[in-house]
């Protein structure tokens, strides 16, 4: 690759990154009905430039959700290699979701009206999270015992708790991050429930 085409490629990658990051922010603030036109305006790019990188709205949506899923998956993967305390793992899970709180709430609220690829991304990320959750439980076996409940139920109960608070965030933490405001209560209560 010569110098000029190498530079072009770098610019192309940077523009794609910029569009994806803008889309994440727009979907978090306005929900998934936001058009690619709005994303182009926010990114200060021509609509045509956005289309070069993401030919359809579905493509943009899918790649944005993949970005979120990949970041969450990679961080939990890294953590589950070393972490032997489920409590720390749960705090990290909450912290990552807090970073994407508006986006995540919009995903679970609007899922039924989103393209099937959105459901696939969510299923992928939840399975990855649950798998690492199981690894950390195995790692902490020497320190404390967890009730003999199948992995999917242990994970689903945790997610049900988080989703209930997210869906009713205005009741639990009006105008604030519900996950951040209630993190200690959520983690401590869940630990009490599952410890043997």
């Amino acid at each position: 690759m010569n110098k000029v085409s190498g530079k072009r490629q770098l610019q192309k990658t940077a523009t794609r990154e910029h569009i994806l990051n803008t889309a994440l922010a727009v979907y978090a603030e306005h929900g998934f009905s936001a058009s690619t036109n709005v994303i182009a305006q926010e990114a200060r790019l021509a609509h045509g430039t956005v289309f070069v990188h993401f030919p359809t709205r579905e493509d943009m949506l899918q790649r944005t959700l993949e970005r979120f899923a990949s970041e969450l998956g990679d961080k939990l993967h890294e953590l589950s290699e070393t972490e032997d305390d489920l409590k720390n793992f749960l705090y990290t899970h909450i912290d990552i979701l807090t970073k994407y709180e508006h986006l995540y709430k919009n995903i679970i609220t609007e899922l039924s009206s989103l393209p099937p690829a959105a459901t696939t991304s969510l299923i992928a990320v939840q399975s990855i999270a649950s798998h690492h959750f199981g690894n950390v439980i195995a790692n902490c076996a020497g320190r404390y015992a967890v009730k003999p409940i199948p992995l999917h139920m242990l994970f689903n109960i945790w997610m049900a708790l988080l989703h209930y608070y997210l869906l009713n965030s205005e009741l639990f933490a009006p105008g604030r991050s519900v996950l951040n405001s209630r993190r200690d209560e959520l983690v401590n209560s869940y630990m009490e429930l599952i410890r043997n």
Binding site: I123, Q126, S127, S130, H131, L151
Partner: peptide, 16 residues
Amino acid sequence: FIVRTQGLDASVAERS
């Protein structure tokens, strides 16, 4: 893997 980690219906898990 999907069924074990989330308990989804087997046909949904396979499609995913």
